[in-house]
Write a protein that binds this DNA or RNA. Sequence first.
DNA 1: GGTTTATTTAACTGTTTAGTTAATCACGAG
DNA 2: CTCGTGATTAACTAAACAGTTAAATAAACC
Lengths: 131, 131
Amino acid sequence: MSLNTPPPDRLSLTLNALADPTRRAILARLSLGETTVNELAEPFEMSLPAVSKHLKVLERAGLISRTRTAQWRPCKLEPEPLKEVDMWLRDYRKMWEQRLDRLEAYLKELQAKDTPVQSAKPKDDKDGDIK
Amino acid sequence: MSLNTPPPDRLSLTLNALADPTRRAILARLSLGETTVNELAEPFEMSLPAVSKHLKVLERAGLISRTRTAQWRPCKLEPEPLKEVDMWLRDYRKMWEQRLDRLEAYLKELQAKDTPVQSAKPKDDKDGDIK
DNA sequence: GGTTTATTTAACTGTTTAGTTAATCACGAG
DNA sequence: CTCGTGATTAACTAAACAGTTAAATAAACC
């Protein structure tokens, strides 16, 4: 019953476009250089219109741009939205690094202590405030 | 007519889970520390079951894990899949850096030339319809 | 037992998506 | 102008999605 269309923010648009193996494969191909729709479609077992739709999704997300040369519409990768994803990710990046650090510390502690029975109980590490 | 279910690769699962502002907000909240479903749901204008479904999507992607304490099921952020996204992104990262370098070089060139009136016509980059 | 609180599942609905085939548009070459 | 090629649009279908309300589960409290 959602009457109002939810505002399709750019990041969601981008991530949604990336959440498909075909589309990611297309991007991978485009990272090697511009090419045409037919050539892009060639490796896939799907019709040309299907690929065309995927391209439209990528275009709407700003991940590719198209020029027009005669009857060809060569596609070009536009990395800007990927950069945005990267920036979004940045805040979380320290999280897994930290977690890795903690694991390291834990393992080191284990080694150092020669770890008797219960000393290593990770009692509620409760990293409540990772941030 | 797709008879065979396409194999839901992990990266697609993750990106799809991230491609929703509500779910990203949930992750952001969880980055501050574990919490319960009710507390997670509180800021949103949607029913509890809806949030519950979002959590299931996040869980299926491995982005959160849940323990069980009495009648609460506290959720915890699991950054591992984000790390995978980061790794996927890595190959493209140099692409926008490179592009930035190129822009820098261009600007530098402009400055060097002391650029009289029309010399700066951006005839080159010509991605006319960025849209 | 019965009630309250936290959360999930069931059943349903409207919307979006991913694909299909067939038709159409856009262009260059004869 | 007509033909062939590259690519998109149209019309359709099946499945997945995001939300709803109502019912069910699970545990604590009395």
